[in-house]
């Protein structure tokens, strides 16, 4: 068991996976939150109801969400080349990871904001708050747990996406597992890569649970 393990290769792959997951989660958090707030704010009976903006954001979100990730990577090759300069390596995986996961997270944000949205808007407006204050001082703080849960689920999904990206040249643990396990039949490499990926996911979940426990008022 584990006779084929090359420590250096593993450390490098692990770092690449962490890098891809972390950086894209960070961007997805920012873009997804903004898109989610836009969807929420322009939605029906919201603070800034705007059918056109809502429909455009909504359609883009739905289309991007329905493209399988592997195909999205391929579709984005020209774009990736333009932005990153190459289509190989961990950096090159970022555009696809970010574009693939942002709409997903945006929908989760929209959902969670809508949960108590109606009465929170009513409350803010009744006390003379501007739309900006309603979002920043009332709705986001009240929806913080949902926002964190959402980014947790999304981050876990992104870790999964990195291994798909890895398989077609982005490096990382997915690449390692595929390269050695699948093409060279070194199953122990695949198992170790899998265990490490599970470890990363459990770690994300742990951080999220700790955060939520800290802010939940019960």
């Amino acid at each position: 068991m584990f006779s084929n393990i090359d420590n250096e290769a593993f450390i490098k792959a692990f770092q690449e996976t962490i890098f891809m997951s972390f950086v894209s989660t960070l961007f997805v958090f920012i873009f997804g939150l903004l898109l989610g707030i836009t969807l929420f704010a322009t939605g029906k009976q919201s603070i800034n109801q705007n059918k056109i903006i809502y429909q455009i954001s909504s359609i883009i979100t739905n289309i991007l969400r329905s493209i399988p990730f592997l195909i999205l990577i391929v579709l984005l090759v020209p774009f990736t080349k333009l932005i990153v300069g190459t289509i190989l390596g961990a950096k090159a995986a970022l555009p696809a990871l970010i574009i693939g996961a942002t709409p997903y997270y945006a929908r989760l944000v929209e959902l969670t904001l809508n949960e108590k949205g109606k009465y929170l808007i009513e409350t803010g407006q009744a006390f003379g708050a501007s739309n900006y204050k309603i979002i920043t001082k009332i709705i986001i703080p009240e929806s913080l747990i949902g926002i964190i849960r959402g980014i947790t689920v999304t981050a876990i999904m992104i870790v999964g996406y990195t291994s798909i990206a890895g398989a077609i040249g982005a490096g990382g643990l997915g690449n390692l597992a595929y390269l050695y396990g699948f093409t060279r039949n070194q199953i122990d490499v695949t198992i170790l890569a899998t265990l490490l990926i599970i470890g990363i996911i459990l770690f994300i979940q742990l951080i999220s649970d700790i955060l939520i426990k800290k802010i939940q008022k019960t």
Binding site: T123, A126, E142
Partner: peptide, 19 residues
Amino acid sequence: RMYRKRVSMIFQNFNLLEQ
């Protein structure tokens, strides 16, 4: 907004912020 400061409101479901 200024007007609404002079006309306050209470609600059936209280509308308190849980956090």
